[in-house]
Amino acid sequence: MPGRTVRATAALALALSVALPATASAAPHCASITEATNPDWMAALPDGSSLAQLSIPGTHQSLSLHGGDLTQTQENHGDSAETLTAQLRAGIRAIDIRVRRYDDLFTLHHGPFYQNANFADVLREADEFLAEHPGEVVLMRLKAECTGEIGSCADHNSSLDVGQILDRYRREDPHGGVLYDPAGGAVPTLGEVRGKVVLAVLQNAHGGLLPGRGLGQFTADTWDEYVQDRYEVPTVFDIDDKWFAVRDHLARTAAGDPSRMFVNFSSGSSPVAHPNTVACGAPGIRGVNDYALEHLTGQAPSRTGVVLMDFPGAALVNAIIAANPDRRAAR
C-alpha cells in the first residue's frame, strides 16, 4: 500500500531528523518537574481515604536516565536515586522500579543499561523523604527487568528469586522498614500506610504477577480491567492512538468502582518514536502530555487513578493532584 509506505517513511525521517533534548521541553506540559512543589499534598487528606479513591501522579521507569533517547524516560536530577527525591518533592507518589538480580541484590536497569542506582538507593531516598513528610505515601510497582534475551540484561550470580531478594531488603537494609507489602490484601487507607512505600505489584521479567504480593485486586485475569499499558507507539503519527487509550482509561477510572485502584500508563515508545517524543511531541505533532494537560484542566475529572508518565511537566503533576476532592474547590 503506497500511502502507508510514504507515511511510515515520513515518520522515520521525522523521528531521525528532529533532535529533541534529553530532558523535557519548556512547554507547560513538559516543563521541568522541579517547577512543581507538592511535598505534603496527601497530608491534608482524611486518614480514612482509600488509596484507590485518589488521583495520584506517578512516573514510568522512574529512574531510567541513561542509555540514550530510546531508554531515557525522566529528567535527570542525579544518580543514586537523587532523581527520585526531586520527583517526590514535586508531588509524584507512584513509582515504577525495574531491577536486575545481581549477587542476590537489586540494581536498577532499563534493558541492558545500568541506571547508576541500586534498590538500596531507592529505599534510602524514599525513607528520608517520608521521614520529613510523614503524611505522605508512595506506591511502588517493582518489576524484574532481565529476560536474558537480546536487547535485555541477564541476572548475575543470584540464587534468590525476586520475592526473596525483596524480603532480604525488608529484613536487612537499614531503610527496609519503609516497605509495606499488602500481601495480596485490599487497597489500604492513607491512615494505615502514611510514611510507607506500598508495594502495589511485584512482577517477574515477563510481566507475570507474583501471587500473594502487593494488592490482591491485581491478577492475571483482572490486569487489563484495571491497568492500561499500551506501550507500543510505532511512529510519531500513532501518538494520537496512545492518547485515546489514556483518555478512555481515564473515563473508565472516573466511572469505576471506587474501592478498586486503576492505573494508567501515559508512556509509550518505539525505535522511531522515543519516550520524549511520545510524551512531549515534535514540531507539528502533539505529545500525550499535552493532550492530558488540556483534558485534565478542562474537565476536572472526579478521579484519575494512578497515572504513570514519562517526562511529566509541573503543570501536569499539579493538574492530577488538583483532581483530588480537597483540591478541586481551589482550581
Results as ranks from 00 to 15, higher is better:
Thr5Arg: 15
Val6Asp: 14
Ala8Val: 13
Ala8Cys: 10
Ala15Phe: 13
Ser17Gln: 13
Ser17Asp: 14
Ala19Tyr: 13
Thr23Val: 15
Ala24Ile: 04
Ala36Gln: 04
Thr37Asp: 15
Asn38Thr: 09
Pro39Ala: 06
Asp40Gln: 09
Ala43Trp: 10
Ala44Leu: 15
Pro46Ser: 02
Ser49Trp: 11
Pro57Glu: 13
Gln61Pro: 00
Ser62Glu: 07
Thr73Ile: 11
Ser80Cys: 13
Leu88Gln: 06
Ile92Arg: 04
Ile92Asn: 07
Asp96Cys: 03
Val99Gly: 08
Tyr102His: 12
Leu105Trp: 10
Thr107Leu: 14
Gly111Gln: 09
Pro112Glu: 06
Ala126Cys: 11
Asp127Trp: 07
Lys143Pro: 00
Thr147Phe: 02
Glu149Pro: 00
Glu149Met: 08
Glu149Gln: 08
Ser152Lys: 08
His156Lys: 12
His156Ile: 14
His156Glu: 14
Ser159Thr: 12
Ser159Val: 10
Leu160Arg: 08
Leu160Lys: 10
Ile165Leu: 02
Leu166Met: 05
Asp167Lys: 15
Asp173Asn: 10
Pro174Met: 04
Gly176Lys: 01
Asp181Phe: 01
Pro182Asp: 02
Gly185Cys: 02
Gly185His: 01
Gly185Phe: 02
Leu190Arg: 00
Glu192Ala: 06
Lys196Gln: 04
Leu199Asn: 06
Gly216Lys: 05
Phe218Ser: 02
Glu225Phe: 08
Gln228His: 02
Arg230Cys: 06
Tyr231Ser: 11
Glu232Gly: 12
Glu232Lys: 15
Trp243His: 03
Phe244Leu: 15
Phe244Ser: 14
Ala245Arg: 03
Asp248Lys: 00
Asp248Gly: 03
His249Ile: 06
His249Asn: 04
His249Thr: 05
Leu250Gln: 01
Arg252Pro: 10
Arg252His: 11
Ala255Met: 08
Asp257Glu: 04
Ser259Asn: 12
Val263Trp: 08
Ser267Thr: 01
Pro275Gln: 11
Cys280Ser: 07
Ala282Lys: 04
Ala282Trp: 07
Ile285Glu: 06
Ile285Trp: 07
Arg286Gly: 01
Asn289Ala: 00
Glu294Ala: 13
His295Pro: 10
His295Ala: 13
Thr304Ile: 11
Met309His: 05
Met309Arg: 03
Phe311Pro: 00
Ala315Ile: 04
Leu316Met: 07
Val317His: 01
Ala319Lys: 04
Asn324Tyr: 06
Pro325Met: 11
Arg327Leu: 14
Ala329Asp: 09
